[in-house]
């Protein structure tokens, strides 16, 4: 294992030395990112909800991956770095999965939010809705 560790070091140095050829053209990556940005702005113009979601969040994921891969060189780092980042992201999904069933509800077995619901119902039926305009019903 000691040898293996040494091996890993030399392997990394090796990879580092060869990095220039792997890096590709940063300006090219940048231009691709800009094209993706334009698409994500144009997405909502079509006005279909699921298209907007894909152009907004799908492209955000692609952009983040491109930045991580090409600018942060996560793929040239030892593999545990990607596992580390991935684990943290999975923990956040866990947090969301465990919390959302409670937070995304307005009442439970033994509790309610009467004051907020009353205020909210007023806003929805009264002058509040008019003030928010048509976008409220998107």
């Amino acid at each position: 294992m000691g040898n293996q560790a040494q091996h890993a070091v030399s392997h990394d140095e090796h990879a580092h030395a060869g990095e220039h050829s792997h890096h590709g053209n940063y300006v090219k990556i940048y231009l691709i990112l800009l094209v993706l940005l334009v698409i994500s702005i144009l997405g909502p113009e079509i006005g279909i909800r699921w298209v907007t979601l894909i152009t907004a969040f799908g492209i955000a994921v692609v952009k983040a991956y491109m930045v991580a891969k090409n600018f942060m060189h996560i793929t040239f780092a030892p593999r545990y770095v990607a596992y580390l980042v991935g684990t943290c992201l999975i923990f956040m999904l866990l947090f969301f999965a465990g919390t959302a069933p409670d937070v995304m509800k307005f009442s439970g077995t033994n509790w309610q939010k009467p004051a907020w619901e009353a205020a909210h119902a007023e806003a929805a039926h009264g002058g509040g809705a008019a003030a928010h305009g048509e976008s409220a019903h998107h």
Binding site: T99, K113, A115, W116, A119, H120
Partner: peptide, 12 residues
């Protein structure tokens, strides 16, 4: 909760 927040969120 009166203004749309959620105390259970803090607990989580």
């Amino acid at each position: 909760p009166d203004k749309g927040g959620d105390p259970v969120l803090w607990q989580h």
